[in-house]
Design a protein around this nucleic acid. Structure first.
Length: 402
DNA sequence: ATTCCACAGGAAACAGTGGTCC
DNA sequence: GGACCACTGTTTCCTGTGGAAT
């Protein structure tokens, strides 16, 4: 008797045992009991925040380190512990956390802090319409009213430099000097940054008060990543599912280049999911390799799909005129606009878009000088054209182009 | 030595959206 | 209901440039 393939799959899924014990552990944001290999940094962060326990305002703090080096984890951990200690006392500490990368504007960032300060309703703090200084004033009022000692944690503060450059430079400056105007309560700023060069882009006045104290997180070594993985594996998987060779590979793939523990952990989770789907008894090297490929491809597909229509058309134009100059790509783009009946944008805007897409790494550009024939930039697609086609196929507006 | 191409990329202005405030 | 705000995506205008051709 032939079994229906659907039934077969469903049978496997229900009877097959899971490799996972607790998936949550395999997210970098999961808070482990002990943050491994960050003793020195934890000590430094704690020391610089100790004044909070003594009812004083600590120095503003700037923390550097590559992605996946545990910066956010350590800061959150230390602050949680401090909060734990003071929670019964008469000295309230309020922690506020926001990620500058997730907010597109300075306004949004301030609102996010405001919400955590208890300005929860639209009436108290609308998401648009007010001037930035008004939002700032409302935050300050809330701090004074409740006599709070606040710690503002701004993750990926390098993105803030961009946001601030548009409007409200002075407001960010005021934020770093807020204590001078607060009659009651206090404000401590902790900035976390992946980018060690971002200092140059920040207003020097802001920088000087922000970096009263600096802590640098070094990269993890491959061995340290391995130990971190081992700890998490114990909790995340049922015993003995991970092939030791797979573990080594996983640590090596993420560790050698950047010392990125986040990537290593993600890789392990994806590999586990692949292995589980295949009803494999254990996770092998091959699963890790395929997980890495899958993550790479997923990243590309998501990036491609998240572009607006004209950027998509432009990527197609680059694809059609592969390795060609801006002028030729612009021509190609205009043709695509004609067939899709879209209003074409100016060449200036297109050059700008090309630069933006180049930044993400989906296309690569190279300036060339052709003497009498001027200066231009040649662009080429860095990824497989098939990936692009596959990703764009879902877009109805592009249907007849593919 | 000079000219001149085919753009790169900065600056500023503008239109449109979605909101507040009085 | 009009003045104002932040913000995005765009246009307009502009200056700058390395080297083949003259």
């Amino acid at each position: 008797m032939v079994k229906d393939p659907i039934d077969k799959l469903l049978d496997d899924a229900t009877t097959g045992k899971s490799l996972f014990k607790n998936r949550e552990v395999l997210h970098f944001t999961y808070m482990p009991d002990v943050v491994l290999h960050r003793d020195e940094e934890q000590k430094k962060v704690t020391q610089s925040l100790i004044p909070l326990l003594k009812r004083a305002r600590p120095s503003n703090l700037l923390i550097y380190g590559k992605p996946g080096t545990g910066k956010t984890l350590v800061v959150k951990k230390v602050l949680n512990k401090i909060q734990e200690r003071v929670k019964d006392g008469s000295f309230p500490i309020q922690l506020l956390y926001a990620n500058a990368k997730e907010e597109t504007t300075l306004y949004g960032l301030l609102v996010k802090f405001g919400r955590q300060l208890g300005l929860t309703t639209q009436k108290e703090l609308p998401t648009t319409g007010l001037s930035i200084s008004e939002v700032f004033n409302r935050l300050m009022d809330a701090i004074e009213k409740n006599n709070l000692n606040t710690v503002f944690v701004v993750d990926e503060i390098d993105y803030l430099a961009e946001l601030v450059s548009k409007t409200g430079k002075d407001v960010f400056y005021s934020l770093t000097r807020a204590n001078e105007r607060l009659k009651k309560g206090s404000l401590t700023l902790i900035g976390i940054s992946n980018d060690l060069t971002f200092k140059e882009r920040l207003d020097p006045r802001v920088l000087s008060s922000l970096s009263e104290e600096e802590i640098v997180f070094t990269n993890y070594t491959v061995n340290q990543i391995k130990e971190i993985l081992v700890e998490r594996i114990k909790e995340a998987f049922i015993p003995n599912v991970l092939d030791p060779a797979a573990l080594n590979l996983c640590a090596a793939m993420s560790g050698q280049e950047h010392g990125d523990a986040r990537r290593a952990i993600d890789l392990l989770r994806v590999a586990g999911e692949i292995a589980e789907r295949e009803q494999s008894e254990s996770i092998k090297e091959d699963h890790i390799r395929r997980a890495s490929l899958k993550m790479e491809e997923d990243k590309e597909t998501t990036a491609l799909n998240s572009y607006p229509l004209h950027e998509k058309l432009l990527i197609l134009a680059v694809m059609k005129a592969n390795g060609n100059t801006t002028g030729e790509i612009y021509q190609s783009y205009k043709n695509l606009c004609k067939t899709t009946r879209q209003k074409e944008l100016t060449q200036r805007r297109i050059t700008q878009m090309l630069s933006e897409i180049e930044m993400t790494g989906l296309i690569s550009g190279k300036i060339i000088h052709q003497g009498m024939h001027g200066r231009t930039k040649k662009f080429a697609l860095t990824l497989n054209p098939e990936t692009v086609k596959k990703a764009f196929r879902e877009d109805l507006a592009l249907e007849d182009l593919l």
